[in-house]
Every structure is written in structure tokens, then in C-alpha cells.
Design a protein around this nucleic acid. Structure first.
Lengths: 363, 363
DNA sequence: AGCCCAGGCTTGAACGATAAAATCGATCCG
DNA sequence: CGGATCGATTTTATCGTTCAAGCCTGGGCT
């Protein structure tokens, strides 16, 4: 690059203001503002002239100024969690993408922040909101005894949650995925394919998500009249692939082994698939396996999996936040009874690991 | 909750302004501002009085107003990619977290946006920058023939990249990970453990990352005087677990099978591990396997893996952006020669799949 | 006493956009 | 033909913060 750097600036600078546009179009600032925000108030001819000036100069209204005047930053805050080694398969990236995409449709953006724990998260949320950096925040992965919703309510910060607490969830807006329905639909699918001895690979009791998924399996087994044998087919361990393999081997070695299993996660499911192959059995034909979360790993190995409708969750949450802060500007609380409380049903993605419907139940 | 909702508002509203603080402390707006931004200009006693008022009222300076006045939004934009089914293991979430964490240290935040393709990404970056929503943007996963750096340079948008193009990379700031050094260090590690027949599982030629990793393996083999046999130990296929298993089976069935393999990704590595087990061999003892990217899956199955120092990349990029926009305010370009050009060396994480150092090379 | 000076604080003026009110022309109607 | 009405545009004021300049007050010096 042989310099020549003192030439005229051809690129429009970052600071084209509404006054520049007004001057170029021969009108006042407010007219430009009207063209952009209330076009019907301006004569067609003027409008066109202003629009030309806008695109000629490459004008974009300054967000800070607009936020200041409107006292609405058009921003939504969301904590991004660190990726721990134990986190086998996170769907946080899908969630954040869905949120960003949903926001973009209505000129809102997602602001990321980090926090070491829940308390700090609440604190940061509050600070961001008080500073007018965000008009609302999103809570990701809210668990039954999560302190965050209560804390944010106390601080008066508008929010919506992905997941919900055991108590007090009526007071705030949330969207959640019905884990119970997810494993139940997996059982239904397997029963329809002719399976009757359907096992479950899960985590030890105590986690809400794990318990829901276990319960969905058990309830569906009961519904299909298969409860009697279920206790022999229920094994628990860590949420890892190797654990899945180990548990599956254990099941297959028992008398009256399962012809199909529902795994609480894809990690367990992928592990189970390998155990099946290791036993010289064909996945999907001899033994069917269904996972949970439809992570890329499941797609890669052809594992059927229950997919959470994260994109839908993102859309719902963003829409709800817009409603919340829009309403706030109008009246105060009071109609809080109309909060969002939506339990979404996940969808089973069928792949080779459970694909060929069996006409007759195998021995 | 038995209403009683018309009580006084105990929670401090979102709109505590600097004037409120000033009034409470019995000083002027500017003095409050000085206490916060240039404490040494204010007498200690006054400072303390103001500080008390600040914390009593829960005052946080309004970001929009500050951004407007300083014409610096203290925000950095970054596109979030959708999670495709083919994306076996993304490290984007780690990167975004690192970026957010690094920014937070100096009161900067990350703004997420989405875009369907590179051109649209450039356009959105430009729009965000022109609107003063971000002071700079970050490019993630820049490939050798990526159009984005050129486009952003043309638009005058300050940016830094994770990854770099084949040409013109001297003109902008980037940090990248040395893939070649990564696979080479894996080979070194295996040679030190006594291995001599070290195979490679990779993708077909044509992708920059894949080729670099292949080249690192080959060069290291050469360096250790093992080049002669390398052509028999180099197999390529898709970046999936099942592909990894298939390729590894193929290698193990050849005459003079490898006692160790380097996989271009964790997906291939995990697949290879299963092939090893399927052959009745013990991973790490009979055959060693090393993956790449140190994804959670690798940790879960005990696969040694080459870990990219993403956190370091995030820190470097954020620091560089601050330098860039700070400099911009001062002088114009000109010292662009001092851009960041940093090639980081990844680090091998040793786990059971290659753990026990062998004193004597096995047959 | 009168003057200067400096530290400590306050006042005025931006930053860029927009809601609300004022202005200007032109049209309409009794 | 005068006043009312209405549409199109401009002017004014404001959001909350900070820079630049101004204003006190008290102390030191001549």
C-alpha cells in the first residue's frame, strides 16, 4: 500500500447526523425524523427527496441518541455461561441464536454478559437495567429452586425466563419445554414400532430435568400397560457417553434385555449406540435407541432424538419482553396476570437408530 | 399475595439521574460527574458525601447518555452463527464467552446479531457501526479466502478477526491458532511415549484448517524420521464420529497397523476410540488416540485432545479493539503497521487415551 | 488595601433524536 | 370577504451526561 493517505475521505464517516440529511434535503431535522418514523405526515415529494438524501449519505439514526430520547435502549440482556468440561452438550448456543434472530426482526439486539454465579447474575442484570443498557433481561435454564426470578422481581427488573421455578412461577413470564412429554413421545414411537421391553438410561434422581424425563418414560410405559417390567429396565449413571455405554451393556446382559431404550440425553444415547454395536447387534434393527436434545452429535451418528423447540422459545421470550416493556410505558403493572406461561412440547426426530418400524415384536 | 399494591415504590426506579444524586448530596451535576470520572478534582469530604448519595439512591450512569456524549457506545458487535446439524463441535460458545468476559473487565459489552451469509454480515456490521451501536466488530472464523476483512476495510469499520485470510492479512488485526503446531505437538507427545507408527485421520484436502492439521502431522513425522511409512497411515473422510470409526477400522486392518493416531477433530477421535475398543484393544495402552479442539465430548470419553487457547484469543481481540478505537479518537490511521498479528500455539491436553508413557515401543 | 492566583464548585452548551407545540399557507364556508 | 380549518413543516424543549468556561472564596504577596 503506497500510502496516498491524505486523499479525500470517500467512505461516509460514522457520524452522519439527522441535521446533515436535513440540510442535504433542504428541510428541517424534524421532517427527516418524520419521514423515518411517521411517513404519512410528510408530502410524498418531500418524502422522496429526504429518502434520497438518507441513502446518498448513508444515514443511520444514532442509537444512543434515540435510546436517550425514547428511554428505551432496544436491547435485551442475557448471561452467557462458561463451557465447563462436564457440559456434555449445551443448547445455549442455539438459544442465543434464536433470541438474537427473534430480536432482530423488531430492531432489538442481545447484549451478552458473564457472571460467576446466580447472585452476581442478578446484580449485573439490575445494574444493566438501571443504567438503561437493556430494557429487559432473559434468564436461561431456570431450575425449580432457582433464586433468580425472585431476586429480579424484588429489584423490579423486567424479565422472562427459559425454564421455571417450582413455586411463584405464576408471577412472571416463562416458556419451558415439557421434558416429560419428550420421553413419553419417544416411548410412544417405540411402542408403535412394536417394542415392548423399553429401557431407560438416565441420571440419578435429584435433578429436575432428569426426573421429568424419567417420569415421562415411566408414565408412558404405564399408559401402554408395560409398567410391570419397567423396574428391571431402569438404569442410572453420569451424563457421559462412556456412562451410557456402561449402562447399556449392563441392560443388555440382563435376562430379558430391552429391545429399545430411551436415553435422557444424547451423550447417554450415543454411548448406548456403541454398546449395541459392541454386542454385535444392529442399532435400529435389533435394538432401537432414542436420545434427547438433538445435538449435532446425534445427527452425526444417526441417533433418533427428542428436539427441544428452542427457536420457538426464543421467539416467545422476545415477544413477551417487548410486550412487557411496551406495557410498562403505558400503565404500570396490574395486568401481570396475563404473563406468558407456555409449556412447549418437544418433537421427536426419527433417524436410523430407531427407524425401521418392526411389523412384529421381536422375541 | 394479598395485593396492597398501591404502597409506595420501595424499589429505586430505573431512572435515578445524576441530578437526583446532585440534589441529594447538595452539589451540582458536574461535581457528581467529577466524583465518578476524576475523583482527584473533588475535595475528599464532598467526594464521600456524593458517594454516599450514589449508593443510597442506587445510581448508575445512563449508558445511552454517556454514549451519546462520548460518541462511544462501549459495545462490540459479533455475529452468532446458527448451529447446523453438520456442525459437529463448535467452539463458538467458548469464544463468545471469552469475548464477553474480556470486555466486561473494561466496561465493554458484546452485542449479538445474526446474518444469513458473509455479505449480509458485512452489511449489518456497517449499519451497526454507522448507527453508533458498536465501536467495533469482531469477525469469527475467518478463512483464507474470506471476503469479510476486505469489505469491512472498504467500509471503514474498525474490526479484529479470529482467523486470517491468505492475502492482505497484514492490513488488519487478527489472532489465530496454529493448527499445524497443534497436530505436530500431538505427534511429539506420541513419539515421546515410544510410538513410531503414528497415523492421521483427517478430512479430504481443500479446507484450510484440515490441510494445516494434516501438514502439522506430516512435518512432525518427517522431523522424527518417520516420513517413510506415513503415506500408509494417512486416511481421510467426513468429520463425523462414524467416519472416524470407519477410518480407524481401515487403518487397524492394514498390515503394520499404527500404534497411535492423530485425529483432525474430536469427532473423528471419539469415533477412532470406539474402533480401537471394538478391535478388542485398550485405548492408551495398545493404541493411543489424540483428538483436536478439546470439546466436552473429548473430556467425557477421556480422549487426549489439542486445545485451542480461545480465552486468550478473546482477550487479545478485545484488547486490540480497545486500542484501535482509542487510537482512532486520538489520531487517524497511519500507525496501522502496529496491528495485532498473533499466531497462538494450542496446548495438548493429555488424557487416558494416550496417557501411560510406554517405556518400549510395542509391536 | 489591593491584586493575583489556585482550588473547588457551578453554569452553560453541546451530543443526536424526537414529542409537543407553534407557524405558515392554502382552502373552505357562511 | 373574514375567520375557521386543515395539512405540511418548522421551532422549541427535552432525554442524561460531560466538556469548557465561569464564578466564588480565601490566602499570599507587594
Amino acid at each position: 500500500m503506497t500510502a496516498g493517505s491524505h486523499g479525500p475521505r470517500l467512505i461516509p464517516g460514522p457520524s452522519v447526523t439527522i441535521s446533515d440529511v436535513a440540510e442535504a434535503a433542504g428541510v428541517s431535522r424534524q421532517t427527516v425524523s418524520n419521514v423515518l418514523n411517521a411517513p404519512d405526515r410528510v408530502r410524498a415529494e418531500t418524502r422522496e427527496r429526504v429518502n434520497r438524501a438518507v441513502s446518498d449519505l448513508g444515514y443511520h439514526p444514532n442509537r444512543a441518541a434515540r435510546s436517550l430520547r425514547a428511554s428505551s435502549p432496544r436491547m435485551v440482556g442475557c448471561r452467557i455461561l462458561p463451557v465447563h468440561a462436564e457440559t456434555v452438550a449445551s443448547i445455549q448456543d442455539r438459544f442465543l441464536h434464536a433470541l438474537a434472530e427473534a430480536g432482530q426482526a423488531c430492531d432489538h439486539h442481545v447484549l451478552l454478559f458473564t457472571a460467576p454465579d446466580a447472585d452476581e447474575e442478578t446484580e449485573r442484570c439490575t445494574a444493566l437495567w438501571r443504567a438503561g443498557a437493556v430494557s429487559a433481561v432473559v434468564l436461561y435454564d431456570v431450575t425449580p429452586h432457582d433464586p433468580r426470578p425472585r431476586q429480579l422481581e424484588a429489584a423490579g427488573v423486567p424479565f422472562a425466563a427459559f425454564g421455571r421455578t417450582a413455586t411463584g412461577a405464576a408471577g412472571y413470564s416463562w416458556a419451558d419445554v415439557d421434558n416429560t412429554a419428550g420421553t413419553a413421545s419417544a416411548v410412544d414411537h417405540l411402542v408403535a414400532a412394536g417394542h415392548r421391553r423399553i429401557g431407560f438410561l438416565g441420571w440419578p434422581e435429584g435433578s429436575s430435568v432428569g426426573d421429568s424425563r424419567a417420569h415421562g418414560w415411566l408414565a408412558a410405559m404405564d399408559r401402554h400397560g408395560l409398567l410391570a417390567q419397567s423396574h428391571r429396565l431402569d438404569v442410572r449413571g453420569d451424563d457421559t457417553m462412556s456412562s451410557g455405554t456402561r449402562l447399556m451393556v449392563e441392560l443388555l446382559d440382563r435376562p430379558g434385555p430391552p429391545t429399545a431404550v430411551v436415553a435422557a440425553t444424547d451423550a447417554l444415547g450415543v454411548g448406548a449406540l456403541h454398546a449395541v454395536r459392541h454386542h454385535g447387534l444392529r442399532p435400529g434393527e435389533d435394538v432401537a435407541v432414542v436420545g434427547f436434545d438433538d445435538t449435532p452429535a446425534a445427527a452425526a451418528v444417526g441417533l433418533s432424538s427428542v428436539r427441544q423447540p428452542i427457536e420457538e422459545v426464543g421467539r416467545l421470550i422476545m415477544a413477551e419482553l417487548l410486550r412487557l416493556v411496551g406495557r410498562n410505558a403505558d400503565e404500570d403493572v396490574d395486568e401481570a396476570a396475563e404473563s406468558l406461561h407456555r409449556l412447549l412440547v418437544p418433537e421427536l426426530v426419527v433417524r436410523a437408530s430407531s427407524a425401521p418400524p418392526r411389523s412384529a415384536p421381536g422375541g
